[in-house]
Design a protein around this nucleic acid. Structure first.
Length: 310
DNA sequence: CCAATTAGATAGCTTACGTCA
DNA sequence: ACTGACGTAAGCTATCTAATT
């Protein structure tokens, strides 16, 4: 952490910037350039998704689903370490294992609202689709209802695998995938669109959580530095006490430019006159230097100062 | 293709009710 | 008759996700 201090006659102000070695290991060097890649930490309280479904018993499945849902809630705020491209895939799995959901691409229900709004072009498309055996339930009602299918476990797995390889599809890939899965190309296209949206949403959640923690850290740091400023002001307003203080270290600070300098190795003890190092500033000039008390600024073990600047 | 939205499916939770020891 | 435990179904809510705009 770099502390840029400026002092006018009565006031002090601070500005902060992160060096590369900060309290935030995952943060980059720029204060505004944040490494948003989720760290590869795991959340112990969240079991891996693939451990959440281990039985086909409906009763057990219910409890597992409960755990899964609870985990999902937690996962919303602790997504680190989870590949956002990796769908839990347990929902479909468990539903199908328990026979709750319709089997392979079954159209589950019908929404009448949108059915009336569909055009005849869509109707013809659906008829074409039906010829491919993709729509199997509106043979009964014969209308052009909006259908909601749930993809089968295998279909989801294939789509996920394909998404991991490339999250966009060219027309050829789309057709091949649709043919392989027995879906319409439009369905494959929509699935990829929705999948990209989910990925983006989860990444956004991860980023948001990370930025939130960054903000909290900066707030804490700012609060701490403000306190230091107050302590420095108090020291400045009590010169007697200030001058009687024995410098706890050999660091000195130039009051005019606020630079901290360390004495050369030959310096003997705190009472000796501070001598600038060869790298120090104002070489040869007669600067007034006052002892610098890092105790008032740096809590033990918190950070190290750059002793000499310029 | 993306963003926003809709709507179906499903699970969890609560509550009321019935049954039984 | 009263009580507590247990099972079940209905209603509500939250979440996921296919589909639409």
């Amino acid at each position: 952490m770099m502390i840029h201090q400026r002092e006018d006659h009565l006031g002090l102000s601070l500005s902060l910037s992160f060096p590369s070695e900060t309290h935030q290991p995952s943060a980059s060097s720029s204060p505004l350039q944040l490494n948003l890649t989720p760290p590869s930490m795991t959340t112990p309280s969240i079991p891996p998704f693939n451990l959440l479904h281990s039985t086909s018993l409906a009763k057990k499945e219910t409890s597992d689903r409960s755990i899964l849902d609870a985990c999902r809630v937690e996962t919303r705020s602790f997504l680190k370490g989870i590949d956002v491209n990796r769908l839990p895939a347990t929902t479909v799995d468990m539903e199908e294992e328990a026979g709750v959901s319709s089997p392979n691409s079954t159209i589950s229900s019908v929404s009448g609202k949108r059915s009336l709004e569909r055009s005849e072009t869509d109707n013809r498309d659906d008829l074409l689709d039906c010829s491919r055996g993709l729509i199997n339930s509106d043979e009964e009602d014969g209308d052009n209802s909006r259908k909601k299918l749930r993809l089968s476990k295998d279909q989801s797995a294939v789509l996920e695998d394909s998404f991991k390889e490339h999250n966009t599809l060219n027309p050829k890939q789309k057709l091949a995938l649709a043919k392989r899965l027995g879906l319409r190309p439009r369905q494959v296209e929509v699935w990829f669109q929705n999948r990209r949206a989910r990925t983006k949403l989860k990444q956004t959640e991860v980023d948001c959580e990370f930025l939130k923690r960054c903000c909290e850290n900066l707030t804490d740091e700012n609060r701490r530095l403000m306190k230091e400023v107050q302590e420095l002001r108090a020291l400045k307003l009590s010169p007697q006490f200030y001058m009687q203080m024995t410098p706890p270290t050999t660091l000195t600070m130039c009051p005019s430019c606020e630079r901290v300098s360390a004495p050369p190795p030959s310096s003997t003890g705190p009472s000796s006159t501070p001598v600038e190092t060869p790298r120090s500033h104002h070489s040869g000039s007669s600067h007034h230097r006052v002892p610098f008390n890092p105790w008032a600024i740096v809590p033990a073990g918190h950070r190290s100062f750059d002793a000499v600047h310029h």
